[in-house]
Write a protein that binds this DNA or RNA. Structure first.
Lengths: 334, 334
DNA sequence: TTGAAAGCGCTACCAA
DNA sequence: TTGGTAGCGCTTTCAA
């Protein structure tokens, strides 16, 4: 038996109270210009009196659209995804679309959850390693407008990413210039395309500089604790997949009595607020802008179906602070 | 004219392909046990072949429920709200409910946006100063299950909050014990009940310690920049409404050549990751738990209507670091 | 300018 | 165990 969660007034009651038909109520409420001013006022008054709010499911069913879109992101840990999602919401709100969020972090039924979500929205942004390309293809086959975010492109689908490889290369070069030679990369390139790009860039930068490749330590996660527990061996430079890992390494180094940057260089990625206060050299990503761009593109796809697939790589920026080696003060960002 | 955003298969097509009625399809899909195994398999095969996903609006309309709930939060700035929302999502996912998010930050049509949202969900969590109590009352009058989060209680509505006043009092006492006497409070108590509670607690603590009341500087916001620009006069202790403001004060102090904590004590609120690395004394809030509790309570309200209104104040914890005055090392948290 | 009525796609009741 | 069918509340023709 259906459990009625809502017991709100319906258009029929408004119509009755206003002494008109439901068609007229509908018109008056959606300010169609096919209603007399007098009629409209009568209807609005009745609606107000009954605290009428149109049923969204009924409306969606009749209109064939949801007036909502969704974003799927991998994990809840850390400020990175949060910022992206918040940038997304702000942009989506701008064109009157509700936002549904779905975190797939270690959810066993992620694929099904995404499919369910797909049934509630006019379009979907899929971020990072949440579901496989097979699911993306499947969604695309249903004609659902899609945008990929921080994820490898799929033919025919819009993709928004941040620059990874190139800036990672720059970072590696910078570290080599500081005199570092024994590199470790902390993070699992297989866990996300972003990380793979950073890893590739670092190796490319080292190779270009004629330095031995970094030793890869594929950590099982991306948070502070994982960084603290990481075994960095006798490296003199630790390039971390993100800031949280790097901050963990910083804490561990301090405990172990290794000075940063004198004994050990450490770098992160994301430029979290904490990086600034930890003096951590890192790479700034336009997180809000990533989310906002995805939302805008999705809206375009929904309203203008058939447009060609777009791809964009948003620039990232090396932020040099203390942790990578000593600099004249004026060169160091805060 | 209705723009069909979705062109997915319907239950009728599945029924036809499987050679059964739509009623049977419905049953087979919702694994009612009133279908033969053979029939079910035939239906499922047909559904798979057509990539059938039930229309959520149709389902919601027929069932009279949305299988979704929403959370309204004030602002996107900073990691605080993000953490709360993420805790909320995780808990809601636990009982199979989709989550809609709505940020009211400076939105002129916030009230209407909340009303619209209310039409899409089985229940709503309203956080902080997003909309007035009149809107809350109005929502409650429609019978929509509601939970208030970090907000002053309204009769008949569940409320989840964090401890503010008491811990603020403790914080004030701690600062006085360090010898500080000229206090400034940075932040606007009128902007949110949380802030009002912290302000009241600080004043109460100072009064109890026989120290002059803090000078109130009601800042226009809660971010780093606002903190950096704040005029703290000749205070020797600055109690900030949140960590971001405090971090801004730290930066400004450094630029002005004032040493912390020797010349100036600074405290925050939230215990962001950055606070740890800035050596900032602050108060830790159970942000994820706030969100998760709200989600759980809302679920309870939805599934068990008529339960009495609950209230809970989650404990917060003073985290002493360097910025409030000198301590023996072992007393200081990291 | 308004009303009547046919869907939108599904659930669940009532018969068979 | 299945099918027929009456809604769920709204939008949008088509007539009046």
């Amino acid at each position: 038996m259906a459990m009625k969660a809502l017991s709100r007034a319906t258009i029929y009651q408004v119509a009755q109270l206003a002494g008109v038909s439901i068609a007229t109520v509908s018109r008056a409420l959606r300010d169609s210009d096919l209603v007399t001013q007098a009629t409209r006022e009568r209807v609005l008054a009745a609606a107000r009196e009954l605290r009428f709010t149109p049923s969204r499911p009924a409306r969606s069913l009749a209109e064939g659209r949801h007036a909502a879109n969704g974003i799927v992101f991998p994990d809840l840990v850390g400020p990175y995804y949060a910022e992206v999602v918040l940038g997304y919401e702000a942009a989506a709100a701008g064109f009157g679309s509700s936002v549904l969020i779905l975190a797939t972090n270690g959810r066993p039924d992620a694929e099904q959850a995404v499919r369910d979500l797909a049934g509630r929205v006019d379009g979907l942004t899929v971020m990072g390693q949440t579901v496989g390309d097979d699911v993306v293809d499947e969604l695309q086959a249903t004609g659902l407008p899609l945008v990929l975010l921080a994820r490898d492109p799929v033919p025919g689908v819009d993709t928004v990413r941040a620059q990874n490889t190139r800036t990672a290369r720059e970072l590696a070069g910078h570290l080599v210039a500081h005199g570092h030679r024994k590199f470790v990369f902390l993070g699992d390139p297989g866990s996300a395309p972003d990380i793979a790009g950073r890893y590739a860039g670092v190796q490319a930068g080292l190779t270009a500089a004629g330095v031995a490749r970094a030793h890869l330590v594929p950590l099982p996660g991306f948070d502070l604790e994982v960084g603290e527990a990481a075994d960095i061996g006798d490296a003199d430079a630790v390039v971390c997949a993100n800031d949280e890992i790097a901050l963990g390494v910083l804490l561990a180094a301090e405990r172990a009595g290794r000075r940063v940057p004198e004994d050990l260089a450490v770098t992160g990625w994301d430029d979290l607020l904490a990086a600034r206060f930890a003096g951590l050299t890192t790479v700034r990503q336009p997180m809000r802008e990533l989310g906002a761009t995805a939302a805008r593109w999705l809206h375009r796809r929904i309203t203008q179906p058939g447009a060609g697939a777009k791809r964009r790589i948003l620039p990232t920026q090396l932020v040099v602070r203390r942790s990578c080696g000593s600099h004249p003060p004026e060169e160091v960002a805060t």
